[in-house]
Design a protein around this nucleic acid. Structure first.
Ligand SMILES: [Mn+2]
Ligand SMILES: [Mn+2]
Ligand SMILES: [Zn+2]
Ligand SMILES: [Zn+2]
Lengths: 148, 148
DNA sequence: ATGCTAAATGAAAATCATTTTCATTTAGAT
DNA sequence: ATCTAAATGAAAATGATTTTCATTTAGCAT
């Protein structure tokens, strides 16, 4: 799923929201970047397309899109702020601690673990968040080549 | 592992830090609560013990303790801020979306998954973050009894 | 097409958590 | 008891996000 203008129009209208230039621009900014962007980064991109949109609108739009399932969030480790990003279905992230690249992955398959925890603790598990941290292949090879 | 005053003194001294009343107080606040506390919450507790400590010191102390491995952090879902908490070894959290209770668990065993991802993507995985969200047994039973 | 109205927007101010600065205090070594 | 680097705290600075509110506009109804 890679939301297009058409998809956007449909989703918004379906949920009683209006289709605005700002919203088109924000979606464009996210879709055109295969990165995960902070609100500020989205704002920068959006301004190039339409200098009149405000940062506040970016925040509001990101939250709306997130509610509508058009985009999702990344939580960085430590102090890092909440990021937003282009979506797919249920998936998780691997984050490179060196260059910040975020790679998606699916098939987390935590059901065994969830099952066990439910049994042991009586918790009814409704969701989870999983992220891996490490060094991407790109950064690894760079270090190697420098060393070599 | 449940750090005591003695443990604290040893760890600090070992790493070239001084043992201060503030640091004792912060550790006490955390250890005496089996909850996960925000810096502000720690501050409230600490003030009862010693009204002269400042919030800044709480921040600094929490970070230090975290580095020293005396405590660890929780990341809430969505907008929630970084929390700090009493420690054990490597472990994760199950967070009740109703009452906010946090339960620890160990044995995450993600090695198979990590292995697979490494192979597929060339990522060198160095760490992970995993949290479950749901409803704790307490909250579940309350709803049941109301319904009944 | 035109008008209408609730929704959407944006500039500025308000919040809120965290960090920085810097003058003062103090733990721990001598 | 003295000394000094480390630690502390009050206040200000920062930075991200949210709130306010006056103005604009999308989409529906004439
Ligand atoms: Mn993603
Ligand atoms: Mn814990
Ligand atoms: Zn990388
Ligand atoms: Zn609960």
């Amino acid at each position: 799923m890679r939301p297009t203008e058409k998809k956007l129009a449909a989703t918004l209208s379906q949920n009683g929201y209006k289709l605005t230039a700002q919203r088109r621009s924000v979606l464009g900014a996210i879709v055109s970047s295969h990165e995960h962007l902070t609100p500020a980064a989205v704002y920068e991109r959006v301004k190039q397309d339409n200098p009149r949109v405000g940062l506040v609108t970016v925040y509001r739009t990101l939250e709306l899109f997130s509610e509508l399932g058009l985009i999702c969030r990344v939580h960085g480790e430590g102090k890092s702020q909440s990021y937003t990003l282009a979506p797919i279905g249920h998936h998780h992230h691997m984050i490179c601690s060196e260059c910040g690249t975020v790679a998606d992955f699916t098939d987390c398959d935590l059901s065994d673990l969830e099952e066990r925890l439910s049994q042991e603790t009586g918790f009814e598990i409704e969701g989870h968040m999983l992220e891996f941290y490490g060094r991407c292949s790109n950064c690894r090879s760079q270090v190697l080549s420098v060393t070599a």
